[in-house]
Design a protein around this nucleic acid. Structure first.
Lengths: 121, 121
DNA sequence: TTGACACATTCCCATATAGGAATATGATTG
DNA sequence: CAATCATATTCCTATATGGGAATGTGTCAA
């Protein structure tokens, strides 16, 4: 069912987003993350595992530390998906602008306008 | 705990993304969605409820139909969040380009091209 | 080797959730 | 009002998940 097996699910958890946010600033060991996020270490390790399994982070072993780093490209599916919607809300704001413009013109009858519609679809 | 109470979680489910994808093309009644997605009606209604609760869709009643439409702006938090990461992978690709460029120059000290892809990772 | 350190894993529990089946609700038509 | 259409809700179950506590594993230092 609802697997945690893709970036969308991995990122749905706020803590994991926080982890990514930290890693976006550079490679970090687990304890760094624990300290920065104020979460119990096992919990951080678990979240890191999920992130690893979907390719959002990569590990590098250095001595007895495990340095995690972000693999931002794994966010592409999300970025690509959401990008298709961006124009929809900018479009909508544009229409709002148009309406406001109309109102303004009605208030200051300098122009010749008067038509207005607003039935969509 | 892991609530379905925000856009990130709502969108983590593939079916819900599908629903949004359909609604992105225009207002639809539930049965339209059922037909288009090939899912049982109660399931669609449940997903629509989740989407409604996080503000991703809005309903309008017309006769005995309920027309759902997308509210793309509710995707902004996702868009905003992921946007901060986009430069990271383009950056990385730029660096890859740079590396490839170097290799090319090393291989052909004269400086004519012939470049072709490569496996990254 | 022993012990400390850094981290991962396991066990356990409470809750959340998707989905199926059946049923309820509300508007429309006859 | 009865029948029907369109949709929502409820009941139920299997599974997934986050988190806590305790423990395991591997590395380095003395």
């Amino acid at each position: 069912m609802a697997t945690t097996a893709d970036a969308f699910n991995a990122v749905a958890e706020a803590r994991r987003r926080q982890i990514l946010d930290v890693l976006a600033t550079g490679e970090r060991g687990v304890n760094d993350l624990v300290a920065l996020l104020g979460l119990p270490q096992p919990l951080v390790s678990k979240h890191l595992r999920v992130l690893r399994e979907v390719g959002l982070v990569e590990v590098r072993e250095q001595g007895r530390e495990r340095l995690y780093r972000l693999n931002a490209e794994a966010l592409r599916p999300i970025s690509d998906w959401v990008k298709n919607y961006e124009r929809l809300w900018t479009q909508r704001l544009d229409r709002l602008d148009a309406v406001l413009q109309e109102l303004k013109e009605l208030q200051e009858p300098t122009g010749t306008e008067q038509g207005h519609d607003s039935r969509n679809e």
